[in-house]
Nucleic acid binder design. Structure first.
Length: 815
DNA sequence: TATGTACATATTTTT
DNA sequence: TATGTACATA
């Protein structure tokens, strides 16, 4: 490993880093000097280029790891990059900054907190916290909750921050009543944030930009330090992030003569699907204008999919106007045709998908973990879950309500946040009466008013309440507040005594009665809430352990850093929380989404149950970006569903939907299925949707229609059997009918669902013997959950160990 | 203060 | 369909 880097910087001698790359990739890795834009089509080896480039900078260009800053959008991408660079260059990678925009900014802001005259232990407010605070602000400003919904205010303020418009100047940008009032809300919102010693996600970026712009010496420190800036997914940057990159890398030498850093951005305008969150394609389209002398390299060779899949993707995306032309190609051949299916309704569509997966796996060519099912909106996952459960197909839904957004998890974290930052008003008010302890709206309002009038924090106002200095507060509430404060004080003591995060968390759950309340509930939802809280405790436990392990390894890291010419390295962590501490834990959970929960498609996931076959992954197309699967089912390809109803009239939004379709198609490696339903229940009402226009944009010869619509002009005989729920499709019985005859009860629309909703079909205990229609004989290894959430893990011997839900008509009997 | 009932409301969501 | 929020009531 080390010999490689003992070589003198000589670009010709690094064939091991570039030899297996195609010419465009190699050019991107070796390019030096001017700003570089790598336009990387889907599957063109983008991450490879980025990681090799970093390794090449070290090996051939004499760069030091501490001079490298690589920025991504997700923690997952950052982790992957860190790992892959480490494979190439070893432990030296530890000195690089490889992180998300947000954690990079947090790191800078905590270090420079003094400069900004703020405390370095600030809380980070996510969208939910921000909305809560905005609700309070809007109420205090007597705004009509209908006209000024927290959601809308949050979106507007977020947009302003993405455009780097601060609260003071927001008023002058307002063009209507809503925006004028929103500007007032913005001012007050910022005041409350700073009072709570907190920043929202958008602040993290904006304040860092402000820091660099207002304090040139600070900016210069980072400029001097980071000589190479690399940005991934550049098409997803918003204006604030773009400006941040510009400030960081620079375009002109600084006053003291520091040259701009070398900038390399990688992206693909065709995969920009986050415009609704402020991302602007402009940044990638105008790169050459923003950074004069910039060089652009196009990566069009695809290493992922068959030519059939790529041709379909090319055809769809080509319909977008004003696009830089780019055509993906592969040298690997055409492969299978795309399979099309027109279902009678969404249940039939799900049955088709399930049946097809079953067949593919039976044939032995495919594992469950090779398969992904995509849909446009989360609520579409339900029908798939229903049928998968029924048939015993192992699956996992990614996304939806995420772990850290669950109410009980947020409640628990709010306690921890108050313990770490007593001024965190939003968290404090969240937990004030959770679990119920007799501090109602009335009492809360009294305290809030007192805080406002005395210009003290909400926490101090609560102390005043205990001392009976809050007017209008009745004794009952006062006593409740006193008890609450004593509870908190006990917890503060525990934290001060140096208790581990997990133990503090346990104490919170016990002493507040939170756990007891859930324990004694007979609502089955509360059972899963308990599980989630246990999971959170486990997360905390592991966090402390891994911090301890990292600390044990620390001397090595320091030795590695010792050859850093950069003396500033030593004070690098100023203001950054102690590893393993409560603040560190909170920072982690604030900035880490649980996208890491996506099962590995090679089936190596420890939670995969069906004997190395892994699980089928269900997710929205948005979530699928950046992933790939041998077999992909694109479902709900109907105008009004995908493209989404709200995009139909808007050319810009339609273009984004088309990019989304492009993303969906290009996730597939070998087999792609596209399906639609003639009828679909939407918002409780049946609706007939026409075929997605994106389907029509795919050349007909690429698709093999397994079943077609009756009168779509595509041919086919009108012999289809009549099934309930909509006009029948053509080309054979519906998949639903086939599966129904194989043991599924068909009581009609919705009947299926109502049946399993509250029935536990089988009561199983550990040790019970069962016989499953598909897996054969098995023994119950463990059981979990209760009511509709009851599951059993069953060892089917040669067929593997499977976890099954026990609701509805399980194709299994107890022996 | 806590609970029940009517009512509107309804994408996607890396941090 | 299902969820959350706003109001009236015990």
């Amino acid at each position: 490993m080390s010999t490689l880097f003992d070589l003198p910087p000589d670009q010709g001698k690094h064939a091991d880093l570039t030899g297996d790359l195609n010419p465009a990739q190699r050019a991107a890795v070796e390019h030096a000097g001017a700003p570089l834009l790598v336009v990387a089509g889907a599957g063109s080896g983008k991450t490879r280029v980025l990681t090799r480039r970093i390794a090449y900078l070290l090996a051939a260009r004499g760069a030091h790891p501490g001079q490298i800053m690589a920025i991504t959008f997700t923690n997952k991408a950052a982790a992957e990059m860190r790992e892959r660079v480490a494979e190439l260059v070893g432990r030296r990678s530890g000195a690089m900054w490889v992180s998300t925009f947000h954690s990079m900014c947090v790191r800078v802001l905590r270090r420079e907190a003094k400069t900004l005259e703020m405390s370095s232990n600030f809380s980070i407010y996510d969208a939910d916290d921000a909305r809560r605070l905005l609700t309070l602000v809007a109420r205090d400003l007597d705004l009509d909750a209908k006209r000024y919904q927290p959601r809308a205010l949050a979106a507007h303020i977020s947009n302003l921050k993405n455009e780097l418009i601060d609260a003071e100047s927001a008023g002058s940008h307002a063009t209507n009543d809503f925006e004028r009032r929103a500007a007032e809300v913005y001012v007050e919102y910022q005041r409350r944030l700073s009072q709570a010693n907190a920043m929202d996600f958008d602040d993290l970026i904006m304040r860092t930009v402000e820091l660099f712009q207002a304090f040139p010496d600070v900016a210069e420190y980072y400029r001097r330090r980071f000589r190479h800036v690399l940005v991934d997914e550049y098409q997803d940057t918003n204006h604030a992030q773009y400006t941040l990159v510009r400030e960081l890398a620079g375009t002109e030498p600084t006053e003291s003569g520091i040259e701009p850093a070398e900038l390399c951005v990688v992206g693909d305008a065709d995969q920009s699907i986050y415009a609704f969150r402020g991302a602007t394609i402009r940044n990638i389209e105008e790169f050459e204008r923003d950074f004069p002398n910039a060089r652009t390299i196009l990566l069009e060779q695809n290493y992922r999919s068959t030519q059939t899949i790529l041709s379909a993707a090319n055809a769809v995306i080509a319909r977008n106007p004003n696009r830089r032309d780019k055509r993906l190609w592969t040298s690997e051949g055409d492969g299978e045709k795309i399979v099309g299916y027109v279902a009678d309704n969404e249940h039939d569509e799900a049955a088709f998908v399930a049946g097809e997966i079953d067949e593919l796996v039976d044939q032995g060519s495919v594992k469950y973990s090779d398969v992904a099912v995509f849909y446009r909106t989360n609520n579409q996952s339900r029908v798939f879950e229903e049928i998968f459960i029924r048939l015993g197909l192992p699956y996992r839904v990614v996304g939806g309500v995420r772990f850290y957004e669950r109410r009980e998890v947020r409640d628990a974290l709010a306690y921890l946040r108050v313990l770490a930052n007593p001024e965190d008003t939003v968290s404090l008010r969240r937990i004030l009466n959770v679990p119920k302890r007799g501090i109602g709206d009335r009492a809360e309002a009294c305290v809030a008013t007192h805080a406002e009038r005395e210009r003290i924090s909400f926490a101090s106002a609560l102390r005043d309440a205990v001392a009976d200095k809050v007017p209008m507060l009745n004794p009952r509430s006062r006593n409740a507040i006193t008890a609450f404060m004593e509870l908190l004080d006990g917890l503060y003591e525990l934290v001060d005594s140096g208790a581990e995060v997990a133990d503090v968390l346990e104490a919170v759950l016990d002493r507040t009665g939170y756990r007891a309340e859930l324990d004694s509930s007979d609502d089955p939802q509360d059972a899963s809430r308990l599980e989630n809280l246990d999971e959170l405790v486990t997360v905390a436990r592991e966090f402390t352990e891994s911090a301890a392990e990292a600390a044990a390894l620390a001397p090595d890291t320091n030795a590695d850093n010792a050859d850093n010419a950069d003396a500033a390295e030593a004070v690098d962590d100023a203001g950054v929380p102690e590893p393993g501490s409560l603040p560190a834990f909170l920072e982690r959970v604030s900035l880490v989404a649980d996208a890491d929960s996506i099962p590995e498609s090679d089936g190596g996931d420890e939670e995969s149950e069906a004997d190395d076959q892994g699980v089928v992954t269900l997710m929205t197309v948005h979530t699928a970006k950046g992933l790939e699967y041998p077999v992909v089912f694109g479902t709900g390809w109907e105008d009004g569903v995908f493209p989404h109803l709200r995009a139909l009239g808007e050319p810009k939004e339609l273009a984004e939907e088309r990019r989304l379709a492009y993303v969906a198609i290009t996730r597939a490696r070998e087999r792609l299925y596209l399906s639609r339903a003639l009828m679909r229940t939407q918002w409780g009402q049946p609706a007939a949707n026409p075929a997605s226009r994106f389907l029509d944009e795919i050349p007909a010869e690429l698709i093999d229609w397994r079943r077609e619509a009756p009168s779509s002009g595509g041919g086919g005989s009108p012999r289809a059997a009549t099934t309930w729920g909509g006009r029948p499709g053509v080309g054979g019985d519906s998949a639903q009918a086939r599966i129904a005859s194989g043991g599924m009860r068909t009581t009609g629309f919705g009947g299926v669902r109502n049946d399993w909703k509250d029935t536990v079909a089988l009561k199983l205990d550990v040790g019970d013997r069962v016989s499953h229609d598909k897996y054969g004989l098995g023994t119950v290894v463990s059981t979990d959950g209760s009511g509709p959430r009851a599951t059993a893990t069953i060892d089917f011997g040669a067929s593997g160990t499977v976890r099954l839900m026990l609701i509805g008509s399980v194709p299994m009997v107890k022996l």
